[in-house]
C-alpha cells in the first residue's frame, strides 16, 4: 500500500501540470468555487450522520470564502495523499482540508494566511507507563499517513518507529490494540479521544511536555495563481473582520462545541519556519 503510494507519487513528479488561464477568472466565469476536502476528518470535514452532507469547520470556511467571491461553493472529496496532485491537475480550485504548512508542501502549492492553528501532541495509553517524550525512544507510534502528524513525529521523535494508517480512527485503534504505544495527532482530536475513552480500558494520556509541532493550516492554491491567492486571503480577512470567522470557530471548536476553545490565532501569513 505505502509502496504503491510512493510509486504513484513518483509518477506524479513527471506529470506536467495542466495549463489554464487565470484561475480566479475561471472561478468567476463558472460561478463556482470547488474546494477539495478529505471528507473523513472529524470536526473539520466529515459526513453529518443525520442528512449525510459533508460538514465541518473546513466546509464552513469553504462556504464563507465562496460567498466572499460571490460564487457558489462546491465540494470534491479527495484522499489525503492525493490532495496536492489533484490540485496541480486542476481537479478543484483550492484545498480546504486541514493542510498544515510544511516546507515540502509549500514547494508544491501556495498557502493562504492561517485559518486554523493546531498543536501536534503525542498521547499514550494511560496504562503504558510512558510519561515522557524521552521514554518513547525505540517504541512504536501511529499517525495518519501523509499527514502533518506523521511529519511531526518523524522530525521531533526520530528515535521512535512510526506506523502510518489510512485514517485517524485506524491510527487510534492501533494504540488501543497495543500495536503502537502512542498516537501523534492534533491536540483537538486527542482531547476528543481522551474524553471518549476516559474511565474505560484503553484510556489515553496526552504528553503535554511540549507540542511536537505547531501546525499552521492554510488554504492551498495552485502555484502561480497570484490573483486567486490574493482573493482567498482578502476573503479570510473579510470574514475575520465581520465576525463570521468567530461564529464558525465557536460552532465547531469554541463555546458552542464540546471543546470550548478560544481562538488564539489571527488570520495572518504563516511563519515560514
Amino acid at each position: 500500500m505505502k509502496t504503491s503510494l510512493a510509486i504513484a507519487a513518483l509518477f506524479l513528479a513527471f506529470l506536467p501540470a495542466a495549463a489554464s488561464a487565470d484561475q480566479l477568472d475561471d472561478v468567476k466565469a463558472k460561478g463556482e468555487l470547488v474546494c477539495g476536502t478529505i471528507g473523513t476528518v472529524p470536526i473539520f470535514s466529515f459526513q453529518s450522520p443525520t442528512d449525510r452532507q459533508t460538514v465541518g469547520y473546513d466546509i464552513d470556511i469553504c462556504n464563507a470564502v465562496a460567498a466572499q467571491l460571490k460564487v457558489k461553493p462546491s465540494l470534491k472529496l479527495v484522499s489525503g495523499p492525493a490532495r496536492i496532485p489533484e490540485l496541480t491537475q486542476n481537479r478543484y480550485d483550492i484545498i480546504v482540508s486541514t493542510l498544515g504548512w510544511t516546507k515540502e508542501r509549500a514547494a508544491q502549492v501556495d498557502y493562504s494566511d492561517v485559518y486554523w492553528v493546531s498543536n501536534q501532541y503525542v498521547a499514550v495509553r494511560s496504562d503504558s507507563g510512558v510519561g515522557t517524550l524521552a521514554a518513547l525512544s525505540g517504541r512504536k507510534l501511529s499517525a495518519q499517513s501523509a499527514s502533518t502528524s506523521a511529519l511531526a513525529a518523524k522530525a521531533a521523535l526520530p528515535d521512535s518507529e512510526l506506523l502510518t494508517f489510512e485514517d485517524v480512527p485506524q491510527s487510534f485503534l492501533a494504540v488501543q490494540q497495543g500495536k503502537t504505544v502512542g498516537i501523534v495527532l492534533s491536540e483537538l482530536m486527542l482531547e476528543r479521544y481522551r474524553a471518549e475513552t476516559a474511565g474505560k480500558p484503553g484510556a489515553i494520556t496526552i504528553l503535554r511536555e511540549k507540542p511536537l509541532m505547531i501546525e499552521y493550516d492554510g488554504i492551498g492554491v495552485r502555484k502561480g495563481e497570484v490573483r486567486l491567492l490574493q482573493a482567498v486571503n482578502d476573503a479570510l480577512h473579510a470574514i475575520e473582520a465581520s465576525g463570521e470567522l468567530d461564529r464558525i470557530f465557536d460552532r465547531w471548536l469554541g463555546k458552542d462545541s464540546e471543546f470550548k476553545l478560544t481562538r488564539g490565532f489571527k488570520v495572518a501569513p504563516i511563519p515560514q519556519t
Partner: peptide, 15 residues
Amino acid sequence: FSATQINAVLMTRPL
C-alpha cells in the same frame, strides 16, 4: 469509502 466516513464520525469504533 462510506465506512471510512462513518469511522470519521464515530472516531473510536473502527473495528
